[in-house]
């Protein structure tokens, strides 16, 4: 219970600091929503400089951009703690509604990508760890390195091209199971190598421990040894990395969501960033931070449950 309470307090503190950073970073970028609007509309060509200045000031007032940055932050934070993320400059709709429409799609994609990453990483790690330094281990290492080296945009574009051509994969459209598999594979393949390398090392370490050697001496098969004895302790050091991977896949799959026109939060944020739609960008970044914090806190708790040594160390501390 104390662990959970401490975790919540730490998370709240982190979110507050992050909110300040997010707000400051978003405002530090050159230009603002008024600049974008005037630049895009071409209104400048029809107005005298004086008229344009008046119109810009009026628009800035409407958007609340005429106030000082600390005042804007205080007003924004006041709303955010009441779960009001503000109104999009562009659409005039509540940001919470717009993000809400897209969170499920991002969660589905991130979750599916994570499953792909874990499954493939587990397969590769398990096969590699059976005979470290062997031919298969080398081949799988090359495969992992290749997957690391290929940028997501290239893998995504190539995947899209051939899937559309060969299987009639729908390039754009709603979030659906029919469309999910390809971006999930692209995300999963991108995230897999780090997980696979760490899991391989962890498995090799566990295979070499006395309990595993004793089990082998008793004639336990490799499959039984792996699943029954080794897998759980081998996964424990992986939890932090898995947490980071999951949170980045869920909340920050920008390139994949854009390439696959996946209607998630990252794709939404990209449009908002170019339009300097501050309420949306701030809400998105805050969401990313919140997801990272929540997932990592959850992983901490899981680590306590999975590995009694961690709980014991915490109690001693």
């Amino acid at each position: 219970m104390a662990v959970v309470a401490r975790g919540v307090a730490t998370a709240a503190g982190l979110l507050l600091v992050a909110s300040m950073l997010v707000f400051a970073l978003v405002r530090a970028a050159p230009g603002d929503a008024v600049d974008v609007e005037f630049g895009e509309s071409g209104a400048s060509a029809l107005l005298s400089p004086e008229e344009e200045a008046v119109a810009r000031a009026q628009r800035a007032r409407e958007l609340g951009l005429d106030r000082s940055v600390p005042e804007q932050y205080a007003r924004w934070l006041d709303r955010v703690v009441r779960l009001d993320l503000g109104t999009s400059f562009r659409t005039g709709r509540p940001v919470a509604d717009e993000l809400g429409d897209r969170v499920a799609a991002s969660a589905a994609l991130g979750g599916a990508g994570f499953l792909v990453a874990l499954t493939v990483a587990w397969l590769i790690a398990a096969l590699s760890a059976r005979r470290p330094g062997g031919l298969l281990d080398h081949a799988l290492r090359v495969l992992s390195l290749t997957a690391t080296a290929v940028p997501t945009f290239l893998l995504g574009s190539l995947g899209l091209r051939y899937a559309a051509e060969w299987f009639g994969y729908p390039v754009a459209g709603e979030a659906s199971w029919r469309r999910l598999w390809l971006p999930a594979v692209v995300l999963g393949v991108g995230a897999m190598p780090v997980v696979a390398r760490l899991l391989r090392a962890s498995l090799i370490t566990e295979y070499g421990r006395p309990y595993a050697l004793a089990a082998r001496a008793r004639g336990t098969s490799t499959a039984r040894l792996t699943f029954r004895h080794v897998m759980r302790p081998a996964f424990a050091p992986l939890l932090t990395l898995a947490g980071l991977t999951l949170s980045s896949l869920v909340a920050a799959s920008v390139i994949t969501e854009v390439i696959f026109s996946w209607p998630g939060v990252s794709e939404y944020a990209v449009s908002a960033i170019s339009a300097k739609d501050y309420p949306v960008v701030q809400a998105y970044l805050l969401l990313v931070v919140a997801v990272v914090v929540v997932v990592n806190r959850t992983m901490d708790v899981l680590q306590h449950l999975l590995d009694p040594r961690v709980a014991h160390a915490a109690q001693v501390a």
């Binding site: 574009s157 754009a172 854009v258 390439i259 026109s261 990209v270």
Partner: peptide
């Protein structure tokens, strides 16, 4: 349908 990526 909006498709943001030109290659897509």
């Amino acid at each position: 349908q909006k498709v943001g990526d030109p290659q897509a």
